[in-house]
Design a protein around this nucleic acid. Structure first.
Lengths: 177, 177
DNA sequence: GCGGTTGGTGTTATATTATAACATTAACAC
DNA sequence: GTGTTAATGTTATAATATAACACCAACCGC
């Protein structure tokens, strides 16, 4: 997101207060829906909460399983409808390369983002770098192409997993080949 | 293979000699495999030919159907193995947003490309714009992320479709510089 | 309230995409 | 030729996604 102060990483710290992330996402969603005149029903809210259950992208069927353990009646369309709504509202992003979903860190603002996917910890984060968007737009325009939608997904290793930042020390990560 | 002169569009003209595209792709593939010491078997060659049967991305099961009508014994793994090989050699690209495949226009050179997908004619083309790659790399690096793989897929309208069919027929050049 | 309309959800079935696991055959090395 | 490996054949199933129709509840105009 556009943070004037440069952040070392858009990935959350290990051991951060994740409940806060979830709470914030739900509040922001409620506000956004209220503004838009859209209904954040209990089901939709619950799907969003499940998407936010971690910073790792979650698949539709994982969400489905968790809805079922809620005791709720649920089938694939239940989940996909919820996700469709959340996607339309810009509350979640779909990650095409994983067939999975992640909560949008900046709903209502970021409409075209670059997704970073850490192959080591599995977390995904988003950027919205104007220079990237500009370069993409210019490149397309020069080639006679008028852009409607963009998918940008980078896989690699996040700063934390690389050992650079705050948490390499704290923790120790599983050996992943 | 990399054309230093800028082209008005990376999309082929309507009515171009497509047989030539296919022939060229197959020759280039044979050469590349020879150089790499890899085996372009009849099956792999046929899968590549089918991927190149048009400039529209083709799904694995469409390839499968066509293999079957060849009279050849074929099942999903047949196709996916062929595609896996071709992907490894850089002879085809997978388009994550479509679950489909397209022949690589510049095998052996372009390893990280931007895919343009025309929502009107369904064709896909690729670019390898250094400025885009640079912007992506810089953006990631500034955020502590070390990039391993990139997926960039832009959907929109290609130059030929933007002006209506007439321009494409006439071989008209899109106006954007 | 009543009745119609709409949007959301429930439910069943099926389509689409992809891989696991093991058997068989072809190519090559010696 | 025989053993080894790579490639393909074959069967089964996993994983992802949507179609189609039924039901219900909220809202709307009256």
């Amino acid at each position: 997101m556009k943070d004037p102060g440069r952040r070392p990483t858009p990935f959350p710290r290990r051991g951060h207060n994740h409940a806060k992330c979830v709470r914030h996402a739900l509040v922001a969603a409620a506000e956004l829906c209220a503004r838009q005149g859209e209904r954040l029903t209990p089901l939709r809210r619950r799907v969003l909460e499940l998407v936010w259950s971690s910073h790792q992208p979650i698949g539709a069927y994982a969400i489905l399983d968790r809805l079922k353990t809620d005791g709720r009646s649920a089938a694939p369309p239940t989940v996909y409808r919820g996700l469709e709504f959340l996607l339309e509202q810009g509350l979640v992003h779909r990650i095409a390369s994983l067939n999975a979903f992640i909560g949008c860190a900046d709903p209502g603002h970021a409409h075209s983002v670059q997704i970073l996917i850490c192959t080591q910890c599995g977390a995904a984060a988003e950027l919205d770098d104007g220079r990237v968007n500009k370069a993409l737009g210019r490149s397309a325009a020069e080639n006679g192409f008028s852009v409607e939608g963009r998918i940008v997904e980078l896989s690699g290793v996040c700063g934390s997993c690389r050992g650079g930042g705050d948490r390499a020390r704290a923790g120790h990560r599983p050996h992943v080949a």
